[in-house]
């Protein structure tokens, strides 16, 4: 199972994940993430959108989740997307995929 919640602060959408982001779980949350991002864009905020994925307590990421990250990052400027609090193993996963810098993984 995956625990997933969402909050906003100013112009930043914060997504918090906990657990295993395998293929099935990633697909289950994919639409919801897209909707939150879509809502912000439609609301026509003046400030540029920032998206933060907090993966502090995530111990597995499937390629489906990596694709969610790529898609979300494409909605904003490169500097305005970040993956925060990754474990060393998850950091390595994004390095292997060649996406650690593009997705601002820390």
């Amino acid at each position: 199972m995956i625990d997933f919640n969402f909050d906003t602060s100013e112009n930043t959408l914060n997504f918090h994940f906990k657990g295993r982001l395998d293929t099935e779980n990633s697909r289950n949350i994919s639409n919801e993430i897209e909707e939150h991002i879509g809502d912000y864009i439609i609301s026509d905020n003046e400030k540029p959108l920032k998206i933060v994925f907090d993966i502090k307590e995530v111990d597995y990421v499937a390629s489906a989740f990596i694709r969610i990250c790529i898609k979300a990052a494409r909605e904003v400027d490169q500097d305005n997307f970040a993956l925060r609090n990754s474990s060393p193993m998850i950091k390595k996963i994004f390095k292997i995929a060649g996406l650690a810098e593009v997705l601002n993984v820390s």
Partner: peptide, 10 residues
């Protein structure tokens, strides 16, 4: 393929 490799690593 590299994204697949990344998942495979786990």
């Amino acid at each position: 393929s590299v994204i697949s490799a990344a998942e495979f690593q786990q």
